[in-house]
Design a protein around this nucleic acid. Sequence first.
DNA 1: AATTTTTATCGCAAATATGCGATATTATAT
DNA 2: ATATAATATCGCATATTTGCGATAAAAATT
Lengths: 109, 109
Amino acid sequence: MKKKSKTTTDAVKILHKTFIKDDPKRLASLQEEREKLKIAGQIYQLRTQAGLSQAQLAKLIGTTQSVISRLEDADYNGHSLNMLRRIAGALHYKVEVRLVPENAASARG
Amino acid sequence: MKKKSKTTTDAVKILHKTFIKDDPKRLASLQEEREKLKIAGQIYQLRTQAGLSQAQLAKLIGTTQSVISRLEDADYNGHSLNMLRRIAGALHYKVEVRLVPENAASARG
DNA sequence: AATTTTTATCGCAAATATGCGATATTATAT
DNA sequence: ATATAATATCGCATATTTGCGATAAAAATT
């Protein structure tokens, strides 16, 4: 395969088209979509930068390839912190969760 | 009631006793405990700083008081991002998730 | 101390995420 | 083009979270 999976890649492009194009009011929910994308992207980035296939990471945390694929799908919305911690932990990372004001410029976007 | 609920308050104190006292090797998992605590604490802080009771916040996001109480329990471990987003959103906050190296000094903890 | 408000805890039903094999799709290599 | 490897998707069983009422425990108010 090439560098990036279709799902994760396309999501970036689809974002604007889907949420901004003709419905400026939906811009609010864009925030949420961005977060979802970021999570998928972060998992993908962590995994590939560690040089692992989905199957390898899956084995590492005791699950199967299809599960990892699902988590890296930008449209997937059901992330649990437990699962994120499992993935992060396997790669010597940790999960940071922050509740920040919607408007404020975030830590270092 | 006083300022802080028993559960959330005590957790701070219990932490050291439980995880460090006689078992230095468990210090690793302390990271995870801290994260859990932070989430409970963040929800609590957000809610009280908004001047809401658990029942009021519950109604705001379409659930019941006992659910909020459960989420503010520092020992609770089953947070989902969906739930966090619901709470954050109701108070005009957003959820930021970051996977950061276990060792590195994080963004601005 | 009695009343009222708020929070914690329990039990169980309903909703959602995970586990996982099978297979299709896509990419890479030959 | 063929073979191989990686990823995406489907369906269904299992596990976990959420929903929610009831009640206990704790705190605030009078």
